[in-house]
């Protein structure tokens, strides 16, 4: 409940403010793979008319089961894939223009960075891509390395990093340009509990600094504690949108219960329950 007041303020302000991130009737179809099993020739529809807006200062949790289309949405926002139809923009600029990416930081779902570079060299490379002036570059690199606690490994090749460290260098590169909007694709997946908690704290601190965070996740417990609003996506359609408290139906206590109901899992859950006595008996 602690979140309800600030959200109310954000929401009332929204009406007049331009969204930082927005999609309008976004549809994405992937061409059917010729070699794939099955005889379906029609394209695979990953997003079916997604409309979404994220406003300044918000932490927005983008939820959905695997294959719902979360990564696809981000791929469109970043210009990796082009939408079949519909519009997408960042800071009011169409995502097809590279300049729309000047003020964002992006953490991909699964990534390996250039293994032969050191953390420092990698960040310097990205800083150059952002046209960060030479005078500020080294200071900025030092700051982000400090922030993700990798100063001790700054001069080591990324090849020698553990998985947790790789994720942290990923976060560091997402922060190198001091972005206003962060797009994080499952930032906690594959991390241990400590790593997950660190990411959660990071998101909270980014929010305190006034940054906007758009992230996808399966970790519903975390989403509940850090998000101002969530959107629940299933099979390429937005099934629910709003602050966590508003998504809970009467009697539901956690986001997980609401999530399962919204994506239509209940029926299967019941069948599982019916089956369970059998499986217990056998």
């Amino acid at each position: 409940m602690g979140f309800s007041t600030p959200i109310a303020i954000t929401m009332t302000n929204c009406a007049s403010i331009e969204p930082i991130l927005s999609t309008e009737n976004l549809r994405v179809e992937y061409a059917a793979l010729s070699g794939s099993a099955g005889n379906s020739r029609e394209p695979k529809v990953a997003l079916k008319g997604l409309s979404l807006s994220v406003y300044r200062g918000e932490v927005f949790g983008f939820l959905g089961p695997n294959g719902a289309g979360k990564t696809t949405t981000m791929n469109v926002l970043l210009g990796f894939t082009s939408a079949t139809s519909g519009k997408a923009s960042l800071f009011g600029t169409d995502v097809r223009q590279p300049i729309s990416r000047q003020r964002i930081g992006y953490l991909p779902e699964l990534t390996y960075y250039y293994k032969f570079l050191t953390a420092e060299e990698l960040l310097r490379f990205y800083a150059k891509i952002f046209n960060i002036p030479k005078a500020q570059r080294e200071e900025r690199i030092r700051q982000v390395l400090h922030r993700v606690d990798l100063e001790h490994a700054a001069r080591r090749p990324i090849r020698t990093y553990s998985k947790g460290m790789q994720q942290r260098i990923g976060i560091a590169q997402a922060l190198i340009n001091d972005p206003d909007l962060l797009i994080l694709d499952e930032p906690t997946s594959g991390l241990d509990p400590v790593g997950r908690m660190e990411v959660r704290h990071l998101i909270q601190r980014l929010k305190q600094e006034g940054k906007t965070v758009f992230f996808s996740s399966h970790e519903l417990g975390e989403v509940e504690t850090v998000c101002d609003r969530v959107g629940i996506l299933a099979q390429g359609e937005l099934k629910a949108l709003g602050p966590v408290q508003e998504l809970l139906a009467p009697g539901e206590r956690s986001l997980e219960q609401a999530f399962l109901r919204i994506i239509g899992y209940q029926a299967q859950e019941e069948t599982l329950c019916k089956k369970s006595p059998l499986s217990l008996a056998s």
Binding site: L78, G79, F80, P98, I99, S100, R101, Q102, I104, Y106, L107, P108, L110, T111, Y112, Y113, Y114, Y126, I129, F130, N131, G170, Q173, A174, N177, I183
Partner: peptide, 14 residues
């Protein structure tokens, strides 16, 4: 293949 193209193209570079 190593997916380093993603963080790179997510930057303001054509």
């Amino acid at each position: 293949e190593s997916r380093t193209l993603f963080p790179l193209l997510a930057k303001p570079i054509t």
